[in-house]
Design a protein around this nucleic acid. Structure first.
Length: 431
RNA sequence: GGAGAGGUGGCCGAGUGGUCGAAGGCGCACGCCUGGAAAGUGUGUAGGCGGGAAACCGUCUCGAGGGUUCGAAUCCCUCUCUCUCCGCCA
């Protein structure tokens, strides 16, 4: 949600920023809506002021016993009634027309987000470790997993259809070990606050983080109206909805491990094989709530938190800054972490860390009081994956695959794998 | 699923038709008191929107939306959320 006052004062800058996302200028239209709205509000309020004054006098006349004056004023107030109802309704209609228009516009990119049309224009800013050389032709994760007998897409299809998986044995355990490792890493090394949240939420929560009103078709909804979260960003960020947080409690840094649900509408034919793009997956999500001036530094910190997981697991990756054409709806700047998948011979996204500024906070009315006595201000919100668990499993399988079809277990995961150092080609844990 | 009770400011809590944005308390801010603090004490302390350079003015908000009334935190209806008890249950 944008601040109409900012647009009023900076219409050119606003249009220029949206143009970087490939959108046509809208400020003139918004300002016209705003002018109409303000005129209606002024008219309605003037009528209300008149009525209130008369209404007040009614009480006085009644108290004095001046029946004639009482009757006159009472009739005056009655006469105004219809006019006021009409003006108020018009004002409300104008107000929601503007609010709807604003709610459908994406956030403005930060100055240092690179311009561009699509993922080809993203800019690599960091690369960690080199893809290693394999003395054999590396396989894709699903080839390895299926051969092990620990990854079953046919069974999942029987239960649920396409884009689901059944994990078993060593890979089910490795998947769980990854999630546990990540969340422990974030609370122990990065000081994030572990949080457990619902995965079913109300419309308001979806509106607050920007899934509604535009992206309803990307998510699942229960018959009684709950939405299944596509990411814990929804629940963690909405924790602040409607609140006025104590400025001294900022920044707040949350981490949660949840199931995530996505319809993947619009990705037909993309990544149809394997676990890369599923309707249901697990993710460890980080969310930070900060003061406005802290947001950009927090984005760097969050990115480092995510990168730290990959470094601990010794998985080669690179970090890119998304260009304006590839950024999400609510983001002002986004870093994507991409792991090297030798089986695919490509870098693939495993984390996305975004600074949203006050965009979400405005939508959900999430504020903080900078100092005691001071006026509340909107929080700035950030979210980032730390990391997508299913994709991390893919990365481990492909990175640590061995010639015989076995997979070595990265050192930090071994304690959670019963001390095993390797999963054999038949799916057995080996020490 | 059944029955009942409730949603008031940053928090707690009074308030059943008229000057109530709303007593009191807590918290917080500033001052007094104190060697310093605590205690005590005084004053102040909601937010949104519109207008205005500002002071300030107007307007709305007592869960949400409708209704009754000249006038609603207060009466009526609908919805929603929370809590308690019962049932069921991981």
């Amino acid at each position: 949600m944008h601040d109409i006052r900012y647009i009023r004062e900076n219409p050119e800058a606003f249009d220029a920023a949206l143009a970087r996302r490939g959108l046509a200028p809208v400020s003139a239209e918004l300002l016209a809506l705003d002018a109409a709205r303000r005129a209606k509000i002024a008219a309605a309020e003037a009528a209300l002021a008149e009525r209130n004054a008369a209404s007040k006098a009614v009480g006085a006349a009644k108290a004095k016993g001046d029946e004639a004056e009482f009757a006159r004023l009472r009739d005056l107030v009655s006469a105004k009634k219809e006019e006021i109802a009409r003006l108020e309704e018009e004002a409300k209609a104008e107000d929601s027309r503007l609010a709807d228009a604003l709610a459908r516009l994406p956030n403005l990119p930060l100055a240092d987000a690179p311009d561009g049309a699509d993922e080809n224009d993203n800019v690599e800013v960091h690369r960690w470790s080199a893809p290693r050389d394999y003395a054999f032709a590396p396989k894709e994760h699903y080839e390895i997993g299926e051969a092990m007998g620990c990854m079953d897409f046919a069974a999942a299809a029987k239960l649920s259809g396409a884009r689901f998986v059944v994990l078993s044995g060593a890979l089910a355990r490795l998947h769980r070990a990854l999630a546990q490792f990540m969340i422990d890493h974030h609370i122990e090394t990065n000081g994030l606050t572990e949080t457990w949240t619902p995965v079913l939420v109300k419309d308001e929560a979806f509106y607050g983080t920007g899934q509604l009103p535009k992206f309803a078709e990307d998510s699942y909804r229960t018959e009684n109206g709950w939405w299944l979260i596509p990411t814990a960003e929804v629940t963690l960020t909405n924790l602040a909805a409607g609140e006025i947080l104590d400025g001294a409690s900022l920044p707040r840094r949350y981490v949660a491990h949840t199931q995530c649900f996505r319809s993947e509408a619009g990705s037909a034919g993309k990544d149809t094989r394997g676990m890369l793009r599923q309707h249901q997956f697990e993710k460890v999500e980080m969310v930070s709530l900060t003061r406005p001036e802290e947001g950009e530094a927090e984005l760097e910190r969050m990115r480092r938190c995510a990168e730290g997981v990959l470094e601990a697991l010794e998985i080669p990756y690179r970090t890119v800054v998304l260009c304006t054409g590839d950024m999400g709806f609510g983001a002002r700047k986004t870093y994507d972490l991409e792991v090297w998948l030798p089986g695919q011979n490509a870098y693939r996204e495993i984390s996305s860390c975004s600074l949203c500024g006050d965009f979400q906070a405005r939508r959900m009315n999430a504020r903080f009081r900078p100092e005691p006595e001071a006026k509340p201000e909107f929080l700035h919100t950030l979210n980032g994956s730390g990391l997508a668990v299913g994709r991390a499993l893919i990365a481990v399988i492909e990175t640590y695959q061995e010639a015989d079809g076995g997979v070595a277990i990265p050192a930090p995961l071994r304690p959670r794998m019963g001390g095993a150092r390797r999963i054999g080609p038949g799916g057995a844990l080996e020490s």
